[in-house]
């Protein structure tokens, strides 16, 4: 029984506050660092913020897409099942870089006139679609792991199919799906770096620029790597605390 398991609520709170504080003050220690890091502190801090935003937005949207997709894949309605199968097949079968470029290139032509998507928005959409497809499979596995007796009991008590899903199936499936979803989130933190291809200035892009100007790739990339490690640590602490919270009532 470690600290995370004992106080999951506090751990989640701490990880979140820690993440925000880190983003907030990152520029201060970095600016004290020698060149080439010091002069670019503000850029690194800005890049880390963009990376976190991309991760949070795509991570959240991805969970919703995953739940919808997971439900859809188990739907009794054949066209819905086909649609979800097609979605997962398409996204898992193509490179993420290609997906980001596609959204970026296609978006202007399909958006109604007057609405323009920023590069950041295009990256967020592409990343959401990508992680959503992977989440779909995790959620589907989670739903299938809910014992049928739980669903029968809910139905026998008079709960509607919707209430049964929200009150019983979803919370129980999340217990099973969460470790896999957390895995996808950790990947997403780093996958968001591919947004550089459509000139979103996130952390990796900052590092690339700074080393190109300073010709000192080693300290720059070490800095970038350390920042990524801190970010992924915060995110995985968050998800493992959530896991511990959902574990209540489980046999250990």
């Amino acid at each position: 029984m470690n600290w995370t398991k004992q106080y999951p609520g506090w751990t989640m709170f701490g990880a979140l506050i820690g993440l925000l504080a880190f983003l907030w003050i990152l520029a201060i220690p970095l600016s004290a660092a020698p060149s080439p890091i010091g002069p670019a502190a503000q850029q690194f801090s800005e890049g880390a913020r963009i990376t976190v935003w991309l991760t949070l937005i795509a991570g959240t949207a991805g969970v919703f897409l995953g739940v919808l997709g997971g439900m859809g894949k188990l739907s009794k309605v054949l066209p819905i099942r086909w649609l979800c199968d097609f979605y997962v097949w398409l996204i898992r079968g193509t490179p993420l870089l290609l997906q980001i470029l596609s959204v970026w290139l296609v978006a202007p032509s399909i958006m109604p006139p007057g609405i323009e998507l920023s590069d950041f928005a295009c990256a967020a959409i592409a990343l959401s679609l990508n992680i959503g497809a992977y989440n779909t499979e995790c959620v589907r596995a989670g739903i299938l792991a809910v014992p049928p007796g739980q669903i029968e009991a809910a139905r026998a008590l008079g709960l509607s199919p919707f209430e049964t899903f929200m009150d019983i199936i979803l919370p129980q499936s999340m217990r099973v799906a969460l470790p896999a979803l957390a895995n996808n989130l950790a990947s997403l933190v780093k996958d968001s770096s591919l947004a550089y291809a459509i000139s979103v200035v996130e952390l990796t892009m900052v590092g690339y620029r700074v080393q190109a100007e300073s010709y000192q790739p080693i300290p720059v990339f070490i800095t970038v790597a350390v920042i990524y490690l801190i970010l992924t640590t915060a995110f995985t602490t968050l998800t493992s605390a959530l896991e511990a919270k959902l574990e209540v009532g489980q046999k250990r």
Binding site: P147, G149, Q150, A153, L157, L159, D167, I168, Q172
Partner: peptide
């Protein structure tokens, strides 16, 4: 049911109050 089928993620109290509150 034979195998009880209590909702494993809910407390005993919540198991009993869920349906009256929802339905």
């Amino acid at each position: 049911f034979q195998s009880f089928n209590l909702f494993s993620h809910l407390t005993i109290l919540r198991n009993i109050t869920l349906a009256p509150m929802r339905v």
